[in-house]
């Protein structure tokens, strides 16, 4: 898509004007991939800073140099700062008998929280942990039954029937939510569950009535990890979704990870993950790539960047 810019080859000192044309081409390219315009522009002004005044390598056009620079930026952005070894962390806590490892998922409506929570459960079961799924979505119709169905399915797929159970407290208001969460953790201790997975109701990130209870929920349940599920389908709103969930837990608590769901539904338009990470610096734990339990993958940064650049 950048063909028409192939002009100067090698050894050219790059001026601001050289970059300006490349800038708009690259930015449009990213926007087509579902990167939010302001994120695209920020990434590209970084490139401008890097390039202006530098000299193109031999046999390399300004355009090619800019592309390379963008590619490096994206790789840097999507590569987590420290390695993510969740299983190891869980093993430490569980091995030291410090109680169950508690993970909660949060996110806006319909993004795939409950489904990807069930995929996480499947992964933990495969690693021989005992998992307690907890129905803290006490609002949406059928939310409890949805999890019950998953627990039944997962129980049938497990080597041992009682490796997974559902903890539920029916439907009701937000006071009920914290009660169910803390109840589940006590139950898990008593019955030797290694991992407690807390599902929560979908909520609009711009509604204080719905976002405020998240902080007290997190205080009550004190999860080891809070994971935001965000979907690949969402457009520019992904920036604010990530920001608002990241700051929903008060000054001393942030999101730990993202799961980016529905990556199988967007083709090469995978920009929403760029938006989420750019907005918060929170790393991606997994990407969701389908509706079955095995459709949970570690993000290949190479694949993602190639897809974004292609």
């Amino acid at each position: 898509p950048f063909g028409f810019l192939r002009n100067v080859i090698g050894g050219k000192k790059i001026q601001k004007e050289d970059v300006s044309k490349v800038k708009s081409v690259l930015s449009q390219h990213l926007i087509k991939k579902n990167v939010a315009p302001n994120v695209a522009n920020s990434l590209i002004s970084e490139i401008e800073k890097e390039l202006v005044g530098s000299t193109t390598a031999s046999f390399t056009s300004v355009e090619e140099t800019a592309r390379k620079s963008l590619e490096r930026q994206l790789i840097k952005l999507l590569t987590p700062n420290s390695s993510i070894d969740l299983l190891n962390e869980i093993q430490e806590k569980v091995g030291n008998k410090e109680g169950p490892y508690v993970i909660s998922v949060v996110g806006v409506n319909g993004v795939g929280k409950s489904t990807n929570l069930s995929k996480l459960a499947y992964w933990f079961l495969q690693n021989n942990y005992r998992v307690l799924i907890t129905a803290c979505d006490t609002f949406r119709s059928g939310a409890v039954e949805q999890l019950r169905t998953h627990v039944n399915n997962l129980s049938n797929l497990s080597p041992e029937k009682h490796q997974i159970e559902l903890f539920e407290g029916g439907y009701g208001g937000s006071d009920l939510v914290a009660k169910i969460a803390t109840g589940a953790i006590v139950y898990a201790k008593q019955h030797n569950f290694d991992i407690v997975l807390l599902d929560t109701a979908g909520r609009r990130h711009n509604d204080a009535h719905l976002m405020t209870p998240l902080a007290s929920f997190a205080r009550a349940a004190n999860p080891d990890k809070i994971i935001m599920v965000g979907e690949a389908l969402v457009g520019t709103d992904s920036v604010l979704q990530a920001k608002n969930f990241d700051k929903a837990f008060g000054a001393n608590r942030r999101l730990d990870f993202f799961i980016v769901s529905k990556c199988d539904t967007v083709g090469d338009m995978i920009g929403s993950m760029v938006n989420m990470v750019f907005a918060t610096g929170i790393p991606i734990l997994f990407v969701g790539t389908g509706q079955t339990y095995t459709d949970l993958r570690t993000l290949s940064v190479n694949w993602a960047v190639n897809t974004l650049m292609s």
Binding site: R140, S141, G142, A143, V144, E145, Q146, H150, Q291
Partner: peptide, 16 residues
């Protein structure tokens, strides 16, 4: 008939 709990969801909404 695919999504877990789909019928319960519709049923609870319809009942309400």
């Amino acid at each position: 008939t695919f999504r877990a709990g789909a019928f319960d969801q519709l049923k609870q909404n319809a009942t309400k």
